[in-house]
Design a protein around this nucleic acid. Structure first.
Lengths: 335, 335
DNA sequence: TTGTATGCGTTATCAG
DNA sequence: CTGATAACGCATACAA
């Protein structure tokens, strides 16, 4: 284990026969350095394999060149089977890579984890914080914002906080889906709603309610938490409550997938007897039996957009308080 | 944007009426501090909301209290639909949380991303590096190890590098699966192999080959890359090559899922005509038509174990060069 | 047990 | 355009 001493600015300076300050200038791309000197320095850097010490740099610059992505750990469990979790991360990562910043990922599950996130972020160990899939009305984003720390929520949080957010057009997507069912002649349209402590759950339910109400149709609601198990249970409830229902909109593809099976087990044909539409457009949606009609949300873009906003704030710009990404109805065989 | 000046050790010291050194001792839990003084310091820390500056600390300690998790970006795409990606991350995250270290996630997709990873890790900006799902014979892990940087590979890399790794028992799992097919009376057992530039792809194919050979049965191989599309294509090839095959082992559940559909489209009943077994045990496996028999790998544990090994190395301990986690055959309806 | 002094590797402010 | 030199905030050897 040869802990090879890492070359410092000083070493490079000696080798190139210049001062530390000059090396620093070259390394940071200052334009006020004579060409031959710059070349000499660059050569020394290459020869020694010099890499700046980030700790030292950030001590003086007050920047860390890293941002934190906070996700409730539940998200990684609930969404383990869809693209939300990996999608957000990939989006964030892509945008960060372009900005040459690091991604510090924090999964806040336990209360201890929450504390840890709070300590870390309030401690200004990162240049900005991106929250994803917030549950309930978390006060942390607003607190960070008050401390002057750049914050963005990817997926709006509950409650009215002054924190900028990006989200997808839940209501618009659901409205299109339910209206499509209505236009296809469905009249007893049920919904499997998502968790009501998340905007994604609430907004999708609202979209359903408003649309069936506007058409003068009755509403029929059961609740799940986006998972398959909960979707199956909700579908059974719905069937019990109204054996004659002829369509169901599920607030997640996972729940829709489970509904498909539950309907089959109950002897219903999809889409002949009951039409089914989901939300997300996970990859599996194209492989269900029958393939699932669903509302696609641009999940990767959600991560990217949130990150872009965050970087802009960190750069001192001001950004629009809300950014809504479009959703799209993807027609397959289930409706 | 009130950039409230953050309190430093100095400020706490003044407030508590002691020296900086003493505050530092208390903050770092040194036992050689008199109780009343400790109390006074802790109170001052609380009142001022003091949080240590990590950059300053790591400048002097030479530690960063963070580790990097490197994943080829392809993994997040290919595995977007299964648990591998989120599972590893969750496992790593859990173990890191217990150790109070941060997770720096790097998705190395493009060549530029690779360079970035290399610069960052060789620059000793993290206390250790965990590689996941290596493709090909990446020289980076070995190079880091030579530089004295703690490294572990989660999922063994190709080639014989001296880098410690943790992996699952691919061969054992596949052997059990194929033997189960043989014991069920299947005689024309095909396989959809994974990418041959990854150990996961290679080892699973080896397990298949050895087992059918030992039983004196013919081998029938088509190749995929773990994705559904590739699985569908491979299944068609297989059917063309041997319309009478009566079983297929797919090296991933995604490919098995696609095979299920392809078989149905080809008029085969599963499991009556053709038995199907997958590998991974993703959540979707329980929801396919019919539910998929598969080899379960402990993916979360893979992340955890890798992280534990890494932390031990970083702590100066030596660890076993290889750690193999058991796999398990999960019987459902498809075989 | 506590305080003093030093240095970690950079960037930034000033002279020259 | 370049070179001293002073912070940045902390941990630690050493002295008291």
């Amino acid at each position: 284990m040869t802990t090879a001493q890492r070359p410092t600015l000083e070493a490079v300076a000696r080798r190139a026969g210049v001062s530390r300050a000059t090396v620093s200038r070259v390394v940071n791309g200052s334009t006020t350095v004579a060409e031959p000197i710059r070349a000499a320095v660059n050569q020394a850097v290459a020869e020694l394999g010099y890499v700046p010490n980030l700790a030292a740099r950030s001590l003086v610059t007050q920047r860390t060149d890293s941002i934190a992505l906070i996700m409730p750990e539940a998200a990684t469990r609930v969404f383990s089977d869809d693209q939300v979790f990996p999608g957000i991360i990939r989006g964030v990562s892509q945008e960060l890579e372009a900005a040459d910043k690091q991604l510090v990922l924090m999964l806040a599950g336990s209360p201890a984890g929450r504390d840890r996130v709070e300590r870390y972020t309030t401690g200004r160990h990162v240049d900005g914080v991106l929250f994803a899939s917030l549950h309930g009305a978390d006060p942390l984003p607003a607190r960070l914002a008050r401390l002057g720390i750049p914050v963005v929520c990817s997926g709006r949080g509950l409650g009215d906080s002054p924190v900028p957010y990006v989200d997808v057009d839940h209501v618009g997507g659901v409205t299109r889906a339910v209206r499509y069912l209505i236009d296809s002649g469905r009249r007893r349209i049920a919904t499997i709603a998502g968790p009501q402590d998340m905007v994604a759950g609430l907004a999708r339910l609202t979209g359903y309610r408003d649309t069936v109400a506007a058409a003068g149709l009755p509403e029929l609601v059961a609740y799940g938490d986006f998972t398959r198990e909960s979707g199956a249970a909700a579908m059974r409830q719905l069937l019990d409550a109204d054996p004659d229902l002829d369509a169901v909109f599920a607030a997640s593809d996972l729940m829709a997938h489970a509904a498909l099976r539950t309907l089959r087990e109950a002897g219903r044909r999809v889409p002949e007897d009951v039409a089914v539409i989901g939300f997300d457009d996970i990859e599996t949606a194209a492989y269900t039996e029958p393939p699932l009609t669903t509302v696609r949300q641009p999940i990767l873009e959600l991560g990217r957009a949130g990150t872009r906003q965050l970087l802009r704030i960190a750069a001192g710009e001001t950004v629009e308080p809300a950014l809504i990404l479009p959703t799209e109805l993807v027609l397959r065989a289930s409706a």
